[in-house]
Design a protein around this nucleic acid. Structure first.
Length: 685
DNA sequence: CAGAGCCGCCTTTTT
DNA sequence: GGCGGCTCTG
């Protein structure tokens, strides 16, 4: 009846067909987690649960897309669903934040949210908190030692996500701020208040309001009543808020499936903790557990590395991986390089060697701890005309001009969006932070009244700007007024046109940037309103550089560069791990605490479990060190502490590659060289 | 002389 | 792209 079940092993099948309430699947790297979870959803549908009453929550949008697609495929080809005829085959799914957003839009009035509320990304949120900080600035002790806006937001966010008092969070992650807890708390209060008056929600608010909705007696019952089963992927990465939401969505119902792997918990910096997976019976008493240990991804020599890394963890990991492959077994290679240039050369050589063997570039990934670790490599790849796509790091949304149009879209539905005003007004020539702030003051974004009344005060704001700047500013604001019955697409196009001259003026390559904005206007075609377009882009920004710019790749094959965080859940034939030296990987930022170090170890574990057939780890012995703009001195790095003797013993060592690439060749000066200056002299004569 | 604008420095990980 | 420091302008 369910042909896909035959392709599962015994443990996977037991998990897919489990029929006794709450279930926890502990699935190590490469053990067929996605296959098992999608099979389980297909089994649930096949045995009578309507697909659109199953909610599949994932952590990243990439995982969400893949899971929903694979489930749909299984259901459409499976006998079970065909017999059911016109029943839906598409499950509800998405990231926690995107499902939260959908729920909030649907129930905005019940939650006391304005209709066109704006969704802030991290940098917007930091800007709001900075606004609040500047207002109470005079009251602050010693400005120099006061945390910067990103730190303030981090403290606030950790406190919210872990549901712990601010003072405890400061104690733990910013001990140098312990005597500043009071002013920090004042800023947090002001931040919450400010977002409320302006109709702004940050990422954490999406979860907070979703939880409020789900725990409400009536609304929560409605939400829970829409669902028969809830599945959560990557449960080791959930935080306290998300746990509350899952529990609330189930009420007294025990039909829940969570999948996770404690050895791959790498989001502690966002308030996540693997304890939620390990101690799940506190919230779901009597939950059953099925563990998957057979690895279908990697060869045994690669798994030996993974297991050795896990043996070094003081607490140990639950899963121990056994290989299932019988492929040719090449041992992983540990490549010592003289410096970063030599590392780049070694990677290029190795990548091309694999391609000669028939491994496509797309089946090879370069994994880095921090996005900027690949900068030198990217230069060299461009020089050699080797195409690549990079995941993680600076996202496209952070391109200033894209954000400008997003802010304009936000303003169209929410004229109280102070942040968007602040940003856009400064695009006008002659307007800086001071007059922008004065204009916003005149607008009275925080005054009571309808949003439309804010725009009526625009003439007052105009007076606050330098006279030379007024015409350009007025043109922009005129575009915000929507004609009656105007289609959304037309409005979007009008806004783009109004922004265009400002973008061309404000940025070096303004004309080239305009093309990107067209993609945003196209996105407005099938949206309900512009603030949805803005929110969707904030919640699901294009995941790789170039995604938004259309298909930039003429070549049909390209190398993948990814941060380890963005690589989680993915696999390639070959993985190259760069900068395996202490301070880089593990990052020195994380070494302050034991938990930090252990999270780095899990991150390294994630990295080494990505490849199917070949693993290369590169250790530059000398690398540029630029911590506080001191000098450009090189630093001799120790190899990563994760390459302990037992781990290193799993590798073949390679110390000889590419050390000579940039060394000058000695010899007598050639005659032609002596003539260079003389030849030039002729030019000046 | 306040405020806009430019130059040169640096950058953990993500929803 | 952000930020601090510096210079130029209205």
């Amino acid at each position: 009846m369910f042909p896909w079940l035959d392709q599962l092993n015994e443990d996977q099948r037991a998990a897919a067909t489990f029929d006794g309430g709450a279930l926890r699947i502990v699935a190590g790297a490469g053990t067929g987690k996605t296959t098992t979870l999608t099979s389980r959803v297909a089994w649930l549908v096949g045995t009578g649960t309507p697909a659109d009453r199953i909610l599949l929550l994932t952590f990243t949008r990439r995982a969400a897309r893949e899971m929903v697609a694979r489930t749909t495929t299984l259901l459409e080809q499976g006998d079970g669903s065909r017999a059911r005829g016109r029943h839906p085959t598409r499950v509800l799914g998405g990231t926690f934040h995107s499902v939260a957003h959908r729920t909030l839009r649907r129930h905005a009035s019940a939650l006391g949210l304005p209709d066109g509320f704006s969704v802030l990304d991290t940098s917007d949120a930091a800007d709001v908190i900075d606004l609040v900080r500047q207002e109470i600035d005079p009251a602050l002790p010693d400005r120099r030692r006061f945390p910067r806006k990103a730190t303030l937001l981090d403290l606030y966010s950790r406190s919210v996500n872990t549901q712990r008092p601010l003072s405890a969070v400061v104690d733990e992650v910013a001990p140098w701020c312990v005597d500043l807890v009071e002013p920090i708390a004042t800023i947090c209060r002001g931040y919450v208040e400010r977002k409320r008056t302006l109709g702004l929600l940050d990422f954490d608010d999406l979860l907070l309001y979703w939880r409020a909705a789900a725990t409400d007696e009536r609304l929560g019952a409605t939400l829970a009543g829409e669902l028969d089963h809830v599945c959560v992927d990557e449960y080791q990465d959930v935080n306290a808020l998300q746990v509350d939401i899952v529990r609330a969505l189930r009420r007294d119902d025990e039909r829940v499936t969570v999948v996770g792997d404690d050895s791959q918990a790498v989001y502690g910096f966002r308030g996540a903790s693997p304890r939620h997976l390990l101690d799940i019976d506190a919230r779901f008493p009597g939950i059953a557990t099925i563990a998957l240990g057979r690895n279908y991804r990697s060869t045994q020599p690669i798994l030996d590395v993974a297991n050795a890394v896990s043996d070094d963890a003081p607490a140990g990991f639950l899963a121990r991986l056994r290989a299932d492959t019988t492929d040719a077994l090449t041992r992983p290679r540990l490549v010592h390089c003289a410096d970063e240039d030599a590392q780049v050369a070694a990677v290029c050589t190795q990548v091309l060697a694999h391609r000669e063997e028939g491994v496509r570039l797309q089946e090879q990934a370069v994994l880095v701890r921090a996005a900027h670790h690949s900068a030198l490599l990217e230069l060299e790849l461009s020089r050699r005309r080797i195409p690549y796509v990079k995941y993680g790091g600076l996202r496209y949304l952070e391109a200033a001009h894209v954000k400008d149009l997003i802010c304009l879209f936000r303003l169209a539905d929410n004229p109280r969006d102070e942040l968007s005003w602040f940003r856009l007004l400064q695009l006008v020539e002659g307007v800086g932070p001071v007059s922008a702030r004065r204009a916003i003051e005149a607008l009275g974004v925080d005054q009571p009244g309808t949003p439309a009344e804010v725009l009526l005060r625009w003439p007052l704001a105009l007076d606050a700007l330098p006279s030379g700047s007024r015409p350009a500013a007025a043109t922009l604001v005129t575009a915000l007024r929507r004609e009656p019955d105007e289609p959304l697409a037309a409005q979007a196009e009008r806004l783009r046109a109004a922004l265009a001259p400002l973008v061309e003026r404000a940025y070096e390559n303004g004309a080239a940037r305009l093309a990107d904005l067209d993609a945003l206007v196209v996105a407005a075609n099938d949206a309900a309103r512009l603030s949805d377009v803005a929110a969707d882009l904030t919640l699901e920004p294009p995941s790789s550089t170039g995604d938004l710019a259309g298909p930039p790749l003429v070549d049909e094959d390209w190398l993948v560069i990814s941060t380890v965080h963005s690589a989680k859940g993915l696999e390639w034939d070959v993985a190259h791990i760069l900068n395996a030296s202490d301070g880089n990987f593990p990052s020195d930022m994380a070494l302050a605490s034991l938990e930090g170090l252990e999270e780095e170890r899990r991150l390294f574990y994630v990295a080494v479990t990505r490849p199917r057939r070949a693993l290369h780890v590169y250790v530059p012995l000398r690398y540029h060190h630029r911590p506080r703009g001191r000098d450009d001195a090189h630093l001799f790095g120790q190899p990563s502490r994760f390459l302990s003797d037992p781990v290193a013993a799993c590798f073949d060592l390679d110390r000889t590659t590419h050390t000579e690439r940039h060394h000058a060749v000695d010899g007598p000066v050639i005659d032609a060289a002596l003539k260079v200056g003389a030849d030039l002299d002729a030019l000046w004569a």
